[in-house]
């Protein structure tokens, strides 16, 4: 089954978010009443797995091995429902 999995990679609390801070300053300059900005990355991944749990485990492992640096980043994995991807919509790299 193909599952759609959403992965959020964010900085651990206490790690300086230089990008978020720069964006906050710029938004302030444009006149928005912004207090803080947190930058994070979201990946939407389609993965073959036997079950929701299996999909979650596979992608959590991928987070530890590639998508996140555990020294400064936390990750969270959210599995959405299984989906069927039409053959012709798959991108070939």
């Amino acid at each position: 089954m193909n599952f759609e999995v959403e992965v959020r990679i964010e900085l651990k609390p206490g790690v300086i978010d230089a990008e978020g801070e720069t964006i906050r300053k710029s938004l302030k300059l444009l006149g928005y009443p912004v207090n803080d900005v947190k930058s994070l990355k979201v990946y939407v991944i389609g993965v073959n797995a036997d079950s929701k749990k299996d999909a979650e485990e596979k992608i959590a492992d991928a987070c530890r091995r590639l998508l996140a640096n555990p020294v400064i980043q936390n990750y969270s994995v959210k599995v959405k429902n299984a989906r069927i991807i039409p053959e012709n919509s798959r991108k070939r790299l």
Partner: peptide
Amino acid sequence: EPEAALTTNLNAR
């Protein structure tokens, strides 16, 4: 796993 990080410059530039 990585034991350290080289991350975004403090001034993000």
